[in-house]
Amino acid sequence: MTGKSRAGGRSEWTLWRALEEWRAKKRELEPMFAAAGLGDEQETLANRAMVDLKRAPPTPPLVSGDTQRDIEEARRYREAYYRHFDESLYKIEALLRLPWVPEMEPLAEAIRGEIAMLREWMTEHPGSRPDFGRLEALVQHYVKLDHPELPLPEGLLEGRRRALMDIAGYPLLVQHALKDPFNEAVPPLTSDAFRTEFDARVQTYLDTAWLHSKVVTHWYATLALDAALARKKRDSTDRARLASLLRRRWPTLSVLLPGFEQADQLWYLVLSGLTFFALFAEWWIPAGLLVVWLSASIGAHRREKKEMEARQAYLSTQVATMKRMRDRFVSGVTQPDKLAFQLRQIDEGGEYVDDILYRLLNLHTYDTEE
């Protein structure tokens, strides 16, 4: 095994452990684990129910010779006998109400039908022990996912467990990577590569219904806000980007060659040299035009600087506002529908917040009362 493989395995194990820890804290995550055949309670409930079905039923009452009393005691015995087994059947029904692999639903219906027939048989034959053999076999097949007539597609559960890692665990992976500046597992939040990768993961999450969970949706929405906030912070300090947002720019070499850092210095050095040359050569008209151009350039650059400072102050204010919105959402103060409204107000052009975030926020029904 190569070093890279060992590192990958260690990374996957760490991510899986993080998912398991969140599963222990948030019961809302249980359905998606159960859909991958990783339920915690199913086997325990099934074993308890099977043990209860094997318990000795109540003993019949002794005949006292008092006809009325014997009839009453016999009635109570039959009711206690029925309740004795019905409690076990109720536990099996509780097992079927737990989330589980969706492909096992036909078998769950068969178990419910078997329970209904057993109850009907116990009603028709009071005080008689029914045969639970078929029910026990069905329950075992249900828990072990090995019914011969309902085979699972090959690789189904393995694929779902991989999806748990790659899709549900993606926000946790990003959070872990952000804590380590030398971790290159994911691209920087401000990069186009991250935006593309993130949108692809969210789209897969939205298309995979069994993964839908308010907890995971909250993770993705928080990560989208963090990425938008990081891009806005970058833009508020990026002078080149601030300059590109100006409506009218004074024509300079840097406008034509934005990748050339010293373009303006070179441009005005050349213009200044030409101005001095024209003055010494007594070319008054060209010299006058160059002086006017240089003077106008100074005024234009001062105007652009003020506009850039105003734009920077505006973006800095928006950064602070978005940071408050993000913190209130993470803490549960702001509901998703209200957050969507606020984001549309602060990002009308959709420059920082993608439409896919609004789809995330609309994925679940929330209680809007605070």
Rank of each mutant, 00 (worst) to 15 (best):
E79G: 09
A240Q: 13
R129A: 11
R201M: 04
N183P: 03
Q342F: 12
F182R: 12
D226Q: 15
I167K: 09
H147R: 08
A108Q: 06
R134W: 03
V63S: 10
R160T: 00
D367E: 06
R48D: 04
A18D: 12
T208M: 07
T196P: 05
S244Y: 07
F260A: 08
S5C: 09
P106V: 00
L245Y: 15
D199M: 10
F329E: 02
R134L: 08
D70A: 05
N362G: 10
G9S: 11
M122Q: 01
F260G: 02
D166P: 04
G133E: 03
A240K: 15
A224F: 05
D337M: 10
R160V: 00
L156D: 00
R201C: 03
W267C: 12
M325F: 15
A296R: 15
E351G: 13
Q318G: 05
M32E: 01
Y314V: 01
T222L: 09
G37H: 08
E21A: 15
L315Y: 05
S191D: 02
Q68E: 13
L229G: 01
V292P: 07
I111L: 04
G3F: 14
V255Q: 14
G332R: 14
R10C: 08
K25N: 13
P181N: 08
M165I: 10
Y205V: 00
